[in-house]
Design a protein around this nucleic acid. Structure first.
Length: 618
RNA sequence: GCGCCCGUAGCUCAGGUGGAUAGAGCAUGGGAUUUCUAAUCCCAGGGUCGCUGGUUCGAGUCCAGCCGGGCGUACCA
């Protein structure tokens, strides 16, 4: 496929912003209005797509904001900008002359049809579908998923895993150097629980038969015993009896954890024995989700660094002893410190997080580190980031540390998602149910799907079911809590995975039915026709792929991409409903086939960047 | 008590660091079909953007104060 480099790829919004930059700099140089260099990015962000096509394709609103300080009328400032905009390098080849300002001072711009048609033609011939690479690639660490391996993965892990994977894929496609790391919880108190359980109430036969299940049972049992909540113990006779026998179980669990941390041979050996079991369990789920990591450096990996971390923080006067523990006092004396060593000598996750930051800075030299973690830990990350900056390890002053927070998964009753019995929902059972329900929705036999084998149907159900779970999560603003509903996510209409996947399958159907050589089509495409408004709207939307990805990156919000894909699918449906493709003739047919080809590829790539698969037929 | 997040249509949700008449889907009502995969498309009704003030050419968006909900708040992660 042709790849003529960035110059062949046009991002109309970026191009227009560059023209506005030239216009505004010229205006400032002429004394029209004072603009400080640091204000320019904010002003250029006011160049964006219009809310309504009747205003053109893009608009700039900065004239109104600048008018006051210039002591002029907004429209007069807009006229000054427009005059310079038209003279900006490259403007005229891409955009029509803006004409007069509209309303209080809107500058509305429309893309030249010729430029639009040619850009679509180049995108059709481009493996990157017309999406330019970032000018300044950054090294970005994405830290996500991070389950506690001693307990089975549950619904609470889905968001971090799915959102983190999507962000990593998108940043990588944009051209950044992305390093994904699964920071496993493999060294904390939950292992103390399993160790305690192993020593007091293990079932050897059960462990031999199904190690994962037995470790899971031990975790759930000991957690109840250690927490010693009367209502939980009353509801679970086995836990209740055990708690009665071991009133000090809670502190004994902590002691087991501390022994592990201190290098106790027995606990260490048990840990070595349990880890492969735990890893096998989570790896199976990652395979099913098609999620991979560049690194899986869990808490245990950083364990050898922790003592030195605490010593260094103490030596630098940042941390000190308090009530037997060691903490970093970031606020006043009354504010709770960030504890990095407990009174019993054990380290905490703050300790590991600080050591991890230092290690990553030294070995990976990232420009940015994204932590895709539950919003409930926002305070923890604020403290850890602040502590890391004060610690002043090499590179920390130049790295962006970002907590990419997300809300809780709720059931349809609005409460945290639990089974009827009140247990957390296992992730694997959740995926199974999604696939089963998808099979019921898509698996019925009818004419359009004749010729699909049982194997095909299973594959479609798996793709649609897993896709539905992922898409439902990704399409929602990550900061809010989200209500988990199989019925909603598996709808075939609206902004769902199934609708998007169906849109892809419809495009595939055209090429299958028409026996079109798509390779030939792409090579021969010299541009497309945009004379029909529906055709033009689709063409313009296709070329906004790069803008959508840019906006995802700005705030780590994958729902920006799902929303755009849904809009694109809507533009396509409208186009396809109104205009014949295979039945068209000559240049119309070639042009529309090219647009269909590009639409299918963009939709598929967009879903792929969300970690969602597609099928040829459904 | 303090801190963070949230409150938008009957329901579930979108609404870049302020922009044009607040948008989708579901549900409700109406229309399009000798189907290029109708799992689609088009149209309609439906809103005090929690409340009250403030900032300004302009506020769902920013500020202050209330009301309501969630989460966190010293040795779990």
């Amino acid at each position: 496929m042709a790849d003529d480099g960035p110059s062949a790829r046009v991002n109309f919004r970026s191009a227009l912003r560059a023209a506005f930059r030239a216009a505004l700099e010229s205006l400032a140089a002429d004394g029209g209005v004072a603009i400080a260099a640091h204000e320019m990015p904010g002003l250029l962000e006011q160049v964006r797509e219009t809310a309504d096509a009747k205003f053109g394709d893009y608009s700039g609103t900065m004239a109104m904001a600048l008018a006051k300080r210039a002591g002029k009328k907004p429209r007069d400032v807009a006229v000054e900008i427009i005059r310079r905009l038209e003279a900006a390098p490259g403007y005229g080849t891409l955009f029509q002359p803006p004409g007069d300002p509209v309303g209080p001072g809107f500058i509305n711009v429309r893309v030249q049809d010729s430029a639009l048609a040619a850009a679509v033609g180049r995108a059709v011939a481009d493996e990157r579908l017309g999406v330019a690479l970032v000018v300044k690639p950054r090294t970005v660490v994405v830290d996500f998923s991070s389950p506690n391996v001693a307990k089975p993965m549950h619904v609470g892990h889905i968001r971090s895993t799915v959102i983190g994977d999507a962000i990593a894929r998108i940043l990588r496609f944009r051209g950044h150097h992305v390093i994904t790391d699964n920071h496993l919880g493999d060294w904390g108190t939950q292992f103390g629980m399993i160790l305690w359980g192993w020593k007091h109430c293990r079932d050897d036969a059960a462990f031999a038969a199904d190690p994962t299940a037995e470790l899971g049972r031990l975790y759930r049992l000991v957690r109840k015993v250690a927490d010693a909540k009367p209502e939980e113990l009353a509801a679970d006779p086995a836990a209740g009896a055990l708690a009665a026998q071991h009133p000090a179980a809670g502190s004994e669990v902590l002691a087991e954890t501390a022994k592990l941390h201190e290098g106790d041979p027995e606990n260490r050996a048990l840990w070595e024995r349990f880890m492969p079991v735990c890893r096998g369990e989570i790896d199976r789920i990652y395979r099913r989700l098609h999620v991979t990591f560049d690194h899986t450096l869990g808490e245990s990996f950083f364990q050898p660094l922790l003592a030195a971390t605490v010593d260094d923080l103490v030596a630098k006067g940042l941390a000190r002893e308090s009530r037997g523990a060691i903490g970093i006092f970031l606020g006043g004396e009354d504010d709770p410190p960030l504890l990095i060593r407990k009174a019993d000598g054990a380290f905490l996750y703050a300790t590991t997080d600080l050591a991890t930051i230092q290690w990553r800075l030294e070995h990976w030299k990232p420009d940015r580190m994204l932590y895709v973690v539950d919003h409930r830990q926002s305070q923890h990350f604020e403290q850890v980031f602040e502590a890391a900056r004060r610690w002043g390890v090499d590179g920390v002053a130049d790295v962006d540390l970002v907590h990419v927070a997300f809300g809780t998964v709720l059931g349809e009753d609005g409460k945290p998602f639990k089974t009827r019995a009140g247990d957390t929902v296992g992730l694997e059972a959740l995926l199974d149910e999604g696939v089963d329900r998808a099979a019921a929705v898509v698996g019925t036999d009818d004419e359009g799907r004749a010729g699909m084998t049982a194997e095909d149907r299973r594959h479609v159900a798996e793709t649609v079911g897993i896709g539905a779970i992922k898409y439902a999560d990704l399409s929602q603003n990550r900061t809010t809590d989200y209500v988990f509903s199989f019925d909603k996510m598996l709808q075939l209409t609206g902004n769902t995975a199934a609708y998007m996947q169906y849109a892809v399958a419809r495009v595939e159907g055209i090429f299958t039915k028409g026996a079109v050589d798509r390779g030939q089509l792409r090579r021969d495409c010299r541009g497309v026709l945009v004379s029909d408004p529906k055709e033009r709207a689709l063409a313009l939307e296709l070329l906004r792929f790069g803008e959508a990805l840019e906006d995802v990156e700005a705030d780590s919000r994958p729902n920006v991409l799902t929303a755009w894909l849904y809009d694109l699918a809507g533009c396509y449906s409208t186009f396809y409903d109104a205009l014949p493709v295979l039945k068209a003739e000559g240049a119309d047919r070639d042009s529309r086939l090219a647009v269909c080809d590009l639409t299918g590829r963009v939709l598929r790539r967009g879903l792929e960047l969300l970690g969602i698969g597609t099928v040829e037929k459904m």
